[in-house]
Amino acid sequence: MTLIGVAWPIHAMAVSVSVSGEVGRPGVQSLQGNARLADAATAAQIKPEAYVLGASWTQQSKQFEQKRLQVGLLYELGAVADQARREGNAPLAALSTKLRQWLQAMPVTGRRVANTLDPGALAANDADNLPLDDADTLSYPRRPSTVRVVGAVQKSCELPHVALQGARKYVKACATQMADRDFLYVIQPDGQVFELGIALWNESPPMVLAPGAIVYVPLDQRLVAGAADKVFNREMADFIATQPLDGGVLP
Rank of each mutant, 00 (worst) to 15 (best):
H11C: 11
H11K: 15
A12D: 03
A12N: 11
M13W: 05
M13K: 15
A14T: 06
A14D: 13
V17W: 00
S20W: 02
S20Y: 00
S20L: 07
G21F: 11
G21R: 05
G21V: 02
E22G: 01
V23H: 11
G24E: 07
G24Y: 09
G24W: 08
G24D: 06
G24H: 01
P26G: 10
P26Y: 13
V28E: 10
V28Y: 07
Q32E: 09
Q32N: 04
R36Q: 15
L37I: 08
D39G: 10
T42R: 13
Q45I: 03
Q45L: 09
I46W: 01
I46F: 04
K47S: 14
K47I: 02
Y51Q: 09
Y51M: 03
L53N: 06
L53I: 02
A55S: 15
S56Y: 06
W57E: 06
W57D: 08
T58V: 05
Q59N: 09
Q59F: 00
Q60T: 09
Q60I: 12
S61T: 11
S61D: 07
K62W: 00
K62H: 12
K62Q: 15
Q63E: 15
Q63C: 04
E65S: 14
K67I: 04
R68T: 14
L69P: 05
L69N: 11
V71T: 13
V71S: 11
L73Q: 09
L74D: 02
L74I: 15
Y75E: 12
E76P: 07
L77Q: 14
L77K: 09
D82Y: 02
Q83S: 09
Q83P: 00
A84Y: 08
A84F: 01
A84P: 14
R85I: 10
R85H: 12
R86F: 05
R86A: 12
E87Y: 06
E87W: 00
G88I: 03
G88T: 07
N89R: 11
A90N: 03
P91H: 12
L92S: 10
L95V: 04
L95E: 05
S96G: 14
S96C: 12
T97Q: 15
T97P: 00
K98R: 15
K98H: 03
K98Q: 14
K98C: 01
K98G: 14
K98D: 10
L99M: 15
L99P: 00
R100E: 13
R100C: 04
L103Q: 09
L103C: 08
Q104H: 10
Q104A: 14
A105P: 00
M106W: 00
P107F: 03
P107R: 01
V108A: 08
V108P: 03
T109G: 01
T109H: 06
R112S: 13
T116D: 02
L117M: 09
D118E: 11
G120A: 03
L122A: 04
A123C: 05
N125A: 15
N125P: 00
A127M: 08
D128A: 14
D134L: 02
D136F: 01
D136Y: 00
L138N: 06
S139K: 07
Y140A: 07
Y140M: 07
Y140S: 11
P141Y: 06
R143D: 02
R143E: 15
P144G: 06
S145A: 10
S145L: 08
T146F: 09
T146Y: 08
V147F: 04
V147I: 12
